[in-house]
Write a protein that binds this DNA or RNA. Structure first.
Lengths: 214, 214
DNA sequence: CTTGACATAGAACTAATGTTCGGTAGAATC
DNA sequence: GATTCTACCGAACATTAGTTCTATGTCAAG
């Protein structure tokens, strides 16, 4: 934890000013705006203090860039850490789970925003909305959002979307590879696992996260 | 919904470039950066297109300000739109659900990051981790994160955390007020609702969102 | 064909912006 | 007392950056 308590008063003012400024204007301030806003006597002093703040890792600067100061704080979530995950379709028991088209765009209406901290570093994410209540044994209800990774390898014990070709239905289960058969374990601990022939199961994606908006 | 489909190709490129730029740099680009990044022939053309985009309300500009272009829409995640929600405890069937201390801080280890778009404008959020599998009928499993609002009024049909004083257990159910009794409806559609005396039920918070990290 | 609205280039202009540098004052160190 | 270090000031400087202006090209309507 970086110590912010023993900062010189002026640096504290600068930090405060920048935060408020960004909040109001969506853009960091210029040196001279900081000068006025934080009552610093000269631009060189601002520069001076900014260097100090940068050393203290309380902000980072893009050299020679106008408005090139970015608060790096620690409590706030970095915008880079957010991502839009497109909801590319619905997962229905009687159909294979959709996978994203190449050009599936994360437009506003059809996406969920989640923090990267919730899903690791995966890049190839997409989300499905669950239709019908056929996923009850995965503790998933109609309307829930399932965040999936397209490319991620599914390992023993991972929750995955599986299409069972013989039954013509898709389901979300924990998967265990047992030779020529798969053990599929419902997420619901009151239910028993069951087994399918590996040839009859298409794994369609690894589930990273389930979100239920109320 | 503003129509973005019939934009000239170059304006679309500009918009895309700005969005990506902001995502990477935390700061909007300059005119000349846009020129290069979106392959526009001259700065005046950028200016020209920006005016058009502003007319179309796809962005807004601060005149004569360096990097004074801000994407206005409706789609992108604004850093302001993110929040840390502290996980203040565990919800266990046999105990009342914890509510946040005044000084419960959203430190990194014990919080979930969610987008405001997922939970509305509520400010008084906290999260609980579910312990044990006593919430199965709410389709909630051990380890799931329940995001709750402390102050939000619970209305008919809302999902809420309820402590049943006579049974000495807490539960998550949809609540319906029916005079002196409450109807509690499990989230699981295969289960029947049941009724409790209103005097034996303490409503402890409104559930906004359930998250299952896999 | 002409006209006029729209799109484009390129350059010039002014203002803003980040940086640097010489110099001062006070406190701490030797 | 000399030296050194930090905090500070003011001005100058070199770019950067937003704007504007003129000239040119395109294309459909009159």
């Amino acid at each position: 934890m970086t110590n912010t308590g023993n900062l010189p008063e002026s640096q504290r003012r600068i930090l405060d000013f920048i935060m408020h400024y960004v909040e109001q204007n969506d853009v960091p301030p210029t040196i001279r705006e900081i000068q006025k806003g934080a009552s610093i006597s000269s631009t060189s002093m601002v520069s001076y203090h900014l260097k100090a703040l940068e050393r203290a890792q309380l902000l980072s600067r893009y050299e020679r860039r106008s408005r090139g100061v970015v608060i790096t704080h620690a409590g706030r979530v970095n915008p880079r850490e957010m991502m839009n995950v497109p909801i590319v379709g619905r997962i229905v028991a009687s159909q294979p789970a959709p996978t994203p088209d190449a050009d599936a765009l994360a437009d506003a209406e059809n996406s969920v925003q989640i923090a990267r901290s919730m899903v690791g570093n995966a890049e190839d994410l997409y989300a499905l909305e669950v239709q019908g209540n056929s996923m009850i044994d995965a503790l998933i209800n109609e309307g829930d959002i399932v965040v999936m990774s397209k490319g991620a390898e599914v390992r023993n014990g991972d929750l995955a979307a599986i299409f069972l070709t013989d039954r013509n239905e898709s389901t979300l289960k924990r998967v265990f590879f047992e030779g020529k058969r798969l053990k599929l374990k419902p997420e619901n601990p009151t239910m028993k696992p069951f087994y399918v022939d590996a040839r009859n199961a298409q794994i369609q994606g690894k589930v990273l996260c389930v979100i239920r908006r109320i």
